[in-house]
């Protein structure tokens, strides 16, 4: 998982968002950007898992326990998902390397 985005960085939800659960899908409003997003079912689960700071590595391990998906596919798709969340400023990232 060395090439996965944010693999060794701590990720958590940005506090500047209002989230609603709609039939299992997470729909959210970003106060900062004024935009609305739908994270869907899996995205919603990932959102729940980053309610407390976690690394992408830990996140993938939890998802592999819950879902029927290969490690490679999970890593690649979670990687792309986290990139998008970061682009939209929906997550906060802390570099663990700076604290070692």
């Amino acid at each position: 998982m060395t090439n996965v985005y944010l693999a060794e960085q701590q990720i958590t939800q940005s506090p500047d968002s209002i989230v609603s659960d709609m039939n299992g899908e997470k729909v959210m409003f970003s106060i900062a950007s004024g935009k609305y997003y739908n994270l869907g079912l899996i995205g919603g689960r990932i959102w729940e898992l980053i309610a407390t700071p976690t690394t992408a590595r830990e996140l993938v391990e939890k998802l592999l326990q819950e879902y029927n998906v290969s490690r490679t596919a999970c890593e690649e798709q979670v990687d792309a998902f986290l990139r998008r969340l970061h682009q939209e400023s929906l997550i906060e990232v802390r570099n663990l390397e700076a604290h070692r």
């Binding site: 609305y36 994270l39 995205g43 819950e66 998902f81 998008r84």
Partner: peptide, 18 residues
């Protein structure tokens, strides 16, 4: 077995006017 079905996680931006 007993694992949930996986779907590609996406970030869909909603057009609120629609």
């Amino acid at each position: 077995t007993n694992k949930k079905e996986w779907q590609v996680p996406t970030v869909e931006m909603l057009d609120v006017s629609e």
